[in-house]
Design a protein around this nucleic acid. Structure first.
Ligand SMILES: [Mn+2]
Ligand SMILES: [Mn+2]
Ligand SMILES: [Mn+2]
Ligand SMILES: [Mn+2]
Lengths: 222, 222
DNA sequence: ATTAATATTTAGATAAGGCTAAATGGGTAA
DNA sequence: TTACCCATTTAGCCTTATCTAAATATTAAT
């Protein structure tokens, strides 16, 4: 039976995310950047993870995640996001405060705990950052979504997620009222720098750089 | 600033409990039994803990916990018991299922989390096993309590805690209806083996060995 | 096709936490 | 007071996870 250590779980989750769910290869260097460890440490960990058959590792050519690895990663992601919902909905954390705590809580090992937590929260489908919560079988309901800056003038949509979930960025969004679920309409786009003017919830005008808009993900409604 | 590892926290908590809050010495062997590790491993850990000044360690003479150590231990106990309340009250765990999960949850590091959890639970004073929950300063409201077998015939009391909180014992108590808060009255005590007959909640007669009764703690009401 | 630059792995250390086996201290009983 | 038993510590080894420095493979540029 597969048992991963705390550190192995973190690496595996990082591989899952960097490969966007197993679509691409992940390089040692990218992983070392993500994990804030040295490439040498990553090489070592990759050897261990491939012994446990959660990744395919070919020296010098990066790794891909195996089916078993994907399943394991999805369970960690599920736990991470459920705990984030708990922190925001029940303990009144703001969405920029939850990540680090969830980073620890995701490693608690108890099937029963997660099943009960899921029920207690009303089986939420999305976390506070708009990311989908895998179900107990690892199935994910993903919505087709695009960065806000790729919408055209006059088009409308709804904010469903953020790409960058650093505390600083999330606090900025809070301040300007661009929360998950907010309805947005593109009023104008500046050719020169790609910045845009948007209408939030049919009442608030907002100027936004292309950079910021690129980190806000929407589903298009018209 | 004091930072303890996961393993150090577990040892320190064990020392706190075995010394009954810092009253007695704790021996290497007792600790090794409690922690299910070899005495040699304990010696090693004691060296590390005494370097961090949470215990006083004199070779061959066991350890005592320092004031700093007591503070740290009480914070872990606080977290453990608050999580137990959460599991029972909110996630509908039974009182014999919570211990192992709380044993992991108690190590999550976030002041904010614990403060919010405490509020969310309505600042409970006792955990599901009747043990007092230290407040954020480490102060404990303890009730004078005695083992059920030390009460005399005709005396009444209320169950407030259990000494042995193994799952098997807790399930037994559940079955016979001896929950925390139940009112009990001693109807008879058998001289020969110390077993007793008690009345539970003024309606249910129950026979109980001295051994079982010794693990049930009550406050006397008459 | 070489060479230079960059990415990756290997080698050798270290710290935490565990183990077994061997050495040693302390208390007790003769 | 001496011998013996038991508790405890020390020594030496292992695994995980990290690091630095050195070696080597791959890729890009000339
Ligand atoms: Mn994590
Ligand atoms: Mn999230
Ligand atoms: Mn614990
Ligand atoms: Mn308890």
């Amino acid at each position: 039976m597969l048992v991963l250590t705390y550190a192995e779980e973190n690496y595996l989750k990082a591989i899952y995310h960097l490969s966007e769910g197993g679509q691409h290869n992940v390089s040692t260097n990218d992983l070392s950047k993500e994990m804030k460890t040295k490439p040498a440490s990553v090489s070592d960990m990759l050897r261990r993870l491939s012994e446990k058959e959660v990744i395919n590792y070919r020296k010098y050519y990066g790794v891909t995640i195996t089916e078993m690895g994907k399943k394991a990663a999805l369970q960690i992601v599920r736990k991470h996001r459920l705990w984030e919902v708990f922190l925001v909905e029940k303990l009144m954390f703001s969405w920029d405060e939850v990540h680090d705590v969830a980073e620890e809580l995701e490693h608690i090992k108890s099937q029963l705990l997660i099943q009960r937590l899921d029920d207690f929260l009303g089986n939420p489908k999305y976390d506070p950052h708009g990311d989908p919560i895998p179900d107990e079988y690892g199935d994910v309901k993903s919505r087709p979504r695009l960065p806000l800056n790729e919408m055209e003038i006059q088009e409308s949509g709804q904010i469903v997620a953020v790409r960058d979930s650093s505390a600083a960025f999330l606090r900025y969004l809070d301040k300007v009222g661009a929360y998950i679920g907010a309805r947005v309409k593109i009023l104008d786009k500046v050719e020169f720098d790609g910045s845009l003017e948007i209408l939030v919830d049919n009442k608030k005008n907002l100027f936004m750089s292309k950079d910021v808009a690129g980190n806000i993900l929407v589903i298009q409604t018209s």
